[in-house]
Design a protein around this nucleic acid. Structure first.
Lengths: 335, 335
DNA sequence: CTGAAAGCGCTTACAG
DNA sequence: CTGAAAGCGCTTACAG
């Protein structure tokens, strides 16, 4: 900028005005500045401008998910971007990989870069360490999982009711022995989904059998192995609820291997591409990732603008989509 | 930092030394500084530090893909992150959406934020506008698509040979009438894949019939409509090559609707999750997105460290995976 | 409408 | 081992 000013023979301040599109500049001077900037291939330095500016806005927000390559995370990312881009805001993203330490490292990094706000799918269970940043004006919105020991807005699915609805669907068809396979139990939505499973069974007066319940299945292959084990046991269930998208894929693989895909009913939590093209089609409790991402981003921008509104938890409803796998009848009721 | 210095009763420079972990500080002073920093909840400002530092490294790279929610892009993103994170480098990402203008806007934004280098899946066809940034020291690596009118490293799949191999596979089974459905024709890999299709047909002495060739199919639904049309015609092909992952999904949907999934052979370019669980399993020419992302990132970091090596194009090989849909025989040879 | 001075939070280059 | 001064590229707050 200094060089541009020298070449255009104006002051630094005049160059700054032209670059920022202020209208109170003599057209003659403005065009001289523009010519000089083009000639020197001047590139404004946003970071310097942010450092000095009084509002201190960086026009950047951070998004921390567990794994950018999981389709659920990717959909959230995409919908956040769709809210941010029209505002001229850039999204910085990162993957936490269910590691509470990595969560802290990435947040510190983003805070050090002075993002305007942070969208967070947290791995940890104590977010009190964020209170200093929050007091210093950092805006936080928790996505998919609520904050713990910390007050911030959140946008989550109705994990408990959604799961209860999916399990109730199986119960209504006459299933009485329904297995359950879930993601890492320490993750709040995983715990809530299990609560929903218990709710539905209790409502129907069915006792839980720990022999057909598995937690902490975090990869497709772990889920596959668990489902194989459950269905190879002496007293297998007639139906299964898989409480996460990767778990559902593992369950499908296991049932295929056993040749049981048309005998055992399956309902999964979270929808995925091609679920309708499998045979049978996979019945799911679908989350609305797009709505979650969009609302989270909108709330974050609201917080960034004025940080005084009371903290709220927003619940996005899930929807049961029947495609066949969840409508398989139990043996005693089968045709 | 100034406030920390005041509270600890040392100079600004001493605080800077402690924060940056320099060892030439009296332990007594160092601990006083640390206490003061903790008490004031001091957060270092990375952007200010970068602005002043002589090497000017921001420890940030930019990644521009077409659509972060496409599984191919998501895999690249993930593998780039796996190279960047251990180096303490943050990845800034954005979606170009096949819009050459948006490409320029996002690049300008990233350059203004002084990223150390840029990984780019380009939408445009004239990258000469990047030469000023390149001369100013910005490192570029083109991913999945080569640069045009511009010299930079690139990492791409062997689109032409991979497609030729997939089509040759169908020809070897006796298919003579093979349809082709491709993504936006202006995209270089789309064009190269079509070249590969033509290569294989020419090699086998089979003439191309434009009636069963479609380009510019950019969404699943557009591909589905095109495939419906091709197979509903009076002279449908016995096999189809779908040249992109979304196109393949559309083709699968169309063949299902027509009840032809076990009659018409299908080979797709780019692998996707669950391809093996469909009936029939989908035969694909698989790209190694992880290798592409990883190599691209490594080359970029090499460029950032020393910018003098000659520009290279790296080709990552594809691999034919036979799963059933590509092994369906033509009617005259059918059992 | 234009510009000279000060300063954002930090590091450099130097002197002690 | 420690610190006072200058400056990274920009904007603010003011005077003209």
């Amino acid at each position: 900028m200094r060089e541009v000013a020298l070449l255009a023979e104006v002051s630094l301040k005049t160059v700054s005005r032209v670059i920022n599109g202020e209208t109170t500049v003599d057209p003659e001077l403005a065009s001289r500045v523009k010519r000089a900037a083009a000639q020197l291939n001047y590139q404004p330095n946003l970071t310097a401008s942010i450092l000095r500016r009084s509002d201190r806005r960086s026009a950047t927000i951070g998004l921390l998910v567990q794994d950018v390559s999981n389709p659920f995370s990717a959909s959230i990312y995409r919908s956040v971007e769709e809210v941010a881009t029209p505002r001229g805001v850039t999204v910085l993203a990162g993957s936490i990989e269910e590691d509470a330490h990595l969560e802290k490292v990435l947040i510190a990094n983003f805070v050090a870069r002075r993002v305007d706000g942070l969208l967070l799918v947290p791995a940890g269970h104590d977010h009190s360490y964020l209170q200093f940043d929050q007091r210093a004006g950092m805006a936080f919105v928790f996505v998919d999982r609520p904050p713990e020991l910390f007050a911030a807005d959140s946008v989550v699915s109705d994990n408990r009711q959604g799961t209860a609805g999916g399990v109730a669907h199986l119960l209504a068809l006459g299933h009485r022995r329904i297995g359950y396979c879930g993601d890492l139990f320490r993750i709040t939505p995983a715990r809530l989904r299990f609560e929903g499973y218990k709710d539905a069974l209790a409502q129907a007066g069915v006792a839980i059998d720990p022999a057909i319940v598995r937690h902490d299945l975090h990869t497709t292959s772990a889920a596959e192995a668990a489902v194989l084990e459950i269905f190879r046991s002496s007293n297998p269930p007639s139906a299964l609820f898989s409480a996460q998208n990767r778990v559902t894929v593992g369950a499908i693989r296991a049932l295929r291997l056993l040749g049981l895909e048309h005998q055992a009913a399956l309902v999964g939590f979270d929808d995925f591409e091609l679920a309708d093209l499998l045979e049978p089609g996979i019945t799911v409790v679908a989350q609305d990732a797009t709505a979650i991402g969009r609302l989270s981003a909108e709330i974050l921008f609201g917080r960034i603008d004025r940080n005084d509104a009371p903290v709220e938890q927003h619940v996005i409803h899930t929807r049961l989509i029947q495609r066949g796998s969840g409508e398989i009848l139990p043996p005693n009721r089968g045709s």
